[in-house]
Computed example of a mutant assay.
Amino acid sequence: MQLVVARIGRAHGIKGEVTVEVRTDEPELRLGPGAVLATEPASAGPLTIESGRVHSGRLLLRFEGVRDRNAAEALRNTLLIAEVDPEELPEDPEEFYDHQLMDLDVVTVDGTEIGRIFEISHLPYQDLLVVKRPDGGEVMIPFVSEFVPEIDLEAQRAVIDPPPGLLDEAEAEIAGSRKAEAEGGRKGDSAGGDDRKGDTAGGREDDSS
């Protein structure tokens, strides 16, 4: 199974180093010297990590065969992909791979059904669980222990304690969309026409850290 473990950022210096946006809780394992990674786009790789170091809080990598700034800059925005055994689990019981979280049922601490996880969004400052609601709407839950106190893989369930207003805002947005659609339908009827148009589409962290 393939997992995205990092995204290459801008070139650093003139000797081929690049900054990377880490997307794994195990960078020392996935992004260590000697690691061979597939890429997206595939034409950019595979890439073998020659060396790595931390500079000003950012991980810098150098790849074999990438010797100057131009070559490093050409890799910008490339995704780095590691091959992982699907049975493998993170060492930390509070960490999870994306594939473990996908399709988990989401309920609140009082048992209210919210929906199902269909995407994990990795942002620079935190990860978000993107939850599909039964009515077709979406809600994004920050993946921190304060708001996601329990992940039960055996029961295939994520228990959330969302911040005040988060679910209300999602429901209000859905209600507003439905109202707009209904009003649009009534306007069409009042015109007496039948001109139908196609629809248009508009690693949990501890909060103490």
Score class of each variant (00 low, 15 high):
163 P>H: 12
142 P>D: 06
89 L>N: 07
63 F>Y: 07
100 Q>L: 12
48 T>M: 02
152 D>A: 11
99 H>A: 14
60 L>M: 11
176 G>M: 04
84 V>K: 11
137 G>P: 07
170 A>K: 02
155 A>G: 11
126 Q>C: 15
80 L>G: 02
67 R>N: 09
90 P>V: 10
146 E>V: 15
100 Q>P: 04
184 G>R: 14
122 H>N: 05
70 N>S: 15
81 I>P: 00
158 A>H: 06
143 F>G: 05
106 V>I: 04
134 P>K: 03
143 F>S: 09
38 A>H: 12
175 A>P: 03
138 E>P: 04
146 E>I: 15
111 G>W: 02
71 A>K: 08
118 F>H: 13
72 A>G: 00
73 E>R: 10
104 L>N: 10
72 A>H: 02
136 G>Y: 00
121 S>Q: 15
165 G>F: 10
119 E>P: 02
50 E>M: 08
142 P>M: 07
78 T>P: 00
66 V>A: 00
142 P>L: 08
171 E>P: 01
151 I>E: 00
83 E>I: 12
120 I>A: 05
107 V>H: 06
76 R>L: 11
70 N>V: 15
103 D>E: 12
99 H>Y: 14
89 L>R: 14
118 F>C: 08
101 L>Q: 09
37 L>E: 02
169 E>W: 07
46 P>V: 11
151 I>S: 00
133 R>S: 03
128 L>Q: 03
130 V>F: 03
53 R>C: 02
83 E>W: 11
87 E>M: 13
88 E>C: 13
101 L>H: 08
107 V>R: 08
113 E>A: 14
45 G>T: 06
128 L>N: 02
138 E>K: 13
152 D>R: 06
49 I>E: 02
45 G>Y: 04
173 E>W: 05
116 R>Y: 06
